[in-house]
Each structure stands twice: as structure tokens, then as C-alpha cells.
């Protein structure tokens, strides 16, 4: 910008408003970047196969319908796979929250020997290449007869979500004052009782956010699911979707309908506790 007289009189104010406008513009670009692909997918799923074939990139609002969703739900085994996924997610969330919250509480409230070592090991786990573990975990699951079972996959997910669970929940416990628990203990509460009756109710929002995060992780994963499931008995939806696309050359409208259907639970979870989740991730990440 060339400096005119006007600019020299009030340079500061002029500059901030210009920068602010530029910032707003850039943020709008980022918002479009984030959600336009999802909206486009949704839009495509509402169109007919013929419309997509003729004019794939055109935007017209004629002939839009939820027909593709109906045929995905009726004609494929997608509902069964979603059921499997939901069961596995539930087991994972319960296991991971139970084990992880206990560990987080211990790490937050007592100062015992070896505490630093435990904390460090939770971080170091993240540095281990997952691919190195895939083969041995496959062999291990084979040996303990947990291949192609709900519990086998849920155990794998639990193990890999525990470190994050511990870090998150520890952050939430750390932000609580200890006075309340001490008061409960003086009134005759056991240590577990103090945790259960006093602290846990106070971190419930955090617990919900962490649980949602675990659920999304388990819902989204395909690598372990590909490896540890082999039939419709326990196969999760990502594996099924990959197969449907490979085998049946799924038409675009059904493909996008499947994609959007499986995105809905994630978006709902995000809408409910997204704010807390983002706060938990940023708070937890900084302490590492």
C-alpha cells in the first residue's frame, strides 16, 4: 500500500482493520476448505446415478432424493457392519475409560516412586511404529483365539487409546482442587469412595469428551480392523466399505451415501462435546 496523507494520520487503525479483514477472509477460506468436501459428498449422495454420469461437476437441485441411502441400507450388509462397529466402540469406550480413568486418578493424586517412569512410558508408546506391532499382535490374537471377535478388536483399540485417555483424564483431575476429596475423607469416605463420589461427578464433562474421542478413534480405524477381522461376524464398517467399493464397483451416489452415513455419528459426537474435546487435546498436548 502506498502511504497517502490519510494513511499517515491514522496509520495504526487503518492497518488493523485491513489486517482484520484479511484475517476474516482467510478464515472463511479455511472454513470452506474444511467443510466443502463434506458438503459436496452429501450433495452427490442425493443425486441420481444418471445425473452424476451426465454432468458430474454440475450443480442442480432437481431430482434430489435420499434414494441412495435407502438402497445402501436395504441392499448391502452395511447395517450389520455398523452394528458390529457400534458394539466394538461401546466395549472399547467402557474398557478404556475404566482402566484409563483409574490410572489417571492415581497419577494425578498420589506421588509415588516410579510415577515419572509410568508417565514417560505412556508417551514412549506413541513413538513405537504401529506396523512393527501389527504382525505380532496378529499372531498373539491368533494364539489366544481372539481373531475375528468383538473383544479381540476392542482389546486392541483399548490398548492404543489408553495413553491418550490417561493424559486427558489426568489433565481434568489436575484441574480439580483436592480440598473436596480431603473433606470427604475426613467424613469417613474411603479413597476409592472419594474418587467415585466426589471427583468423578466433577469431571463428567471431561469423561464424556474423552469417551467420545475414544469412540471416534475406534469407529474410524481401518488398519486393525482389516487385520483382526475376517468375516461378517465382527467386521467393522470401514473394512466393509472398502470391500464393497472393490468388489461391486459401487456407484458414486451409493458410495457417497455410505460415506456420509458413516460420518453422521462422528459429526453428532463432535457437535455434542467438540468444544471440550478440542480444549482437552490442546491442554493435554502441551503438558507432554
Amino acid at each position: 500500500m502506498t502511504s497517502t496523507n490519510e494513511n499517515q494520520i491514522k496509520p495504526k487503525k487503518k492497518k488493523t482493520t485491513f489486517v482484520a479483514k484479511l484475517g476474516t477472509f482467510a478464515i472463511s477460506i479455511f472454513v470452506i476448505y474444511a467443510i466443502a468436501p463434506i458438503l459436496w459428498t452429501f450433495y452427490t449422495s442425493l443425486r441420481t446415478g444418471r445425473d452424476i454420469m451426465i454432468n458430474a461437476t454440475g450443480l442442480s437441485f432437481n431430482n434430489l432424493s435420499f434414494a441412495a441411502y435407502g438402497s445402501v441400507w436395504r441392499d448391502t450388509n452395511f447395517p450389520a457392519l455398523v452394528r458390529n462397529s457400534l458394539i466394538i466402540c461401546t466395549i472399547t469406550v467402557i474398557l478404556s475409560l475404566t482402566l484409563g480413568t483409574g490410572a489417571a486418578y492415581a497419577l494425578s493424586r498420589s506421588n509415588f516412586r516410579g510415577r515419572q517412569g509410568v508417565l514417560l512410558s505412556y508417551i514412549l508408546i506413541r513413538l513405537i511404529p504401529g506396523v512393527l506391532l501389527l504382525v505380532p499382535i496378529y499372531i498373539l490374537m491368533f494364539k489366544i483365539h481372539l481373531l475375528d471377535t468383538y473383544i479381540g478388536l476392542a482389546l486392541a483399540y483399548t490398548t492404543f487409546t489408553i495413553p491418550a485417555t490417561v493424559w486427558f483424564m489426568k489433565g481434568f483431575f489436575d484441574s480439580l482442587p483436592t480440598d473436596l476429596e480431603n473433606a470427604a475423607r475426613i467424613d469417613g469416605c474411603s479413597r476409592l469412595g472419594a474418587m467415585w463420589r466426589v471427583s468423578l461427578p466433577l469431571v463428567l464433562p471431561g469423561l464424556a469428551a474423552t469417551g467420545t474421542l475414544i469412540a471416534i478413534e475406534a469407529w474410524n480405524d481401518i488398519l486393525f480392523a482389516l487385520l483382526l477381522t475376517s468375516s461378517n461376524r465382527s467386521r467393522t464398517w470401514p473394512v466393509g466399505m472398502r470391500e464393497m467399493i472393490g468388489e461391486f464397483q459401487l456407484p458414486w451416489e451409493q458410495l457417497t451415501a455410505t460415506a456420509f452415513l458413516s460420518l453422521i455419528p462422528v459429526l453428532i459426537g463432535f457437535a455434542l462435546v467438540g468444544r471440550k474435546m478440542v480444549a482437552g487435546i490442546t491442554a493435554g498436548s502441551l503438558k507432554e
Binding site: 479455511f30 472454513v31 458430474a56 471416534i216 472398502r242 456420509f260 458413516s262 462422528v266 468444544r275 478440542v278
Partner: peptide, 30 residues
């Protein structure tokens, strides 16, 4: 805005993969 911008990170990789394959398709991609 922060939450909206974080959404892509939580989209299932399978959905991300096929969504973008479609959008980058030489014949049908927007």
C-alpha cells in the same frame, strides 16, 4: 470456527480417501 476447522481430522480415513478420490477423479471430479 476452531471446531469446524478440526473436523477433517476426525473424518474417518475411509471416508476421506473415497471422498477425495471422487473429487479428484479425472472424469467426475469437481
Amino acid at each position: 470456527l476452531r471446531i469446524i476447522l478440526v473436523i477433517p481430522w476426525f473424518v474417518p480415513p475411509v471416508v476421506t480417501a473415497y471422498m477425495w478420490r471422487f473429487m479428484l477423479d479425472p472424469d467426475f471430479g469437481i
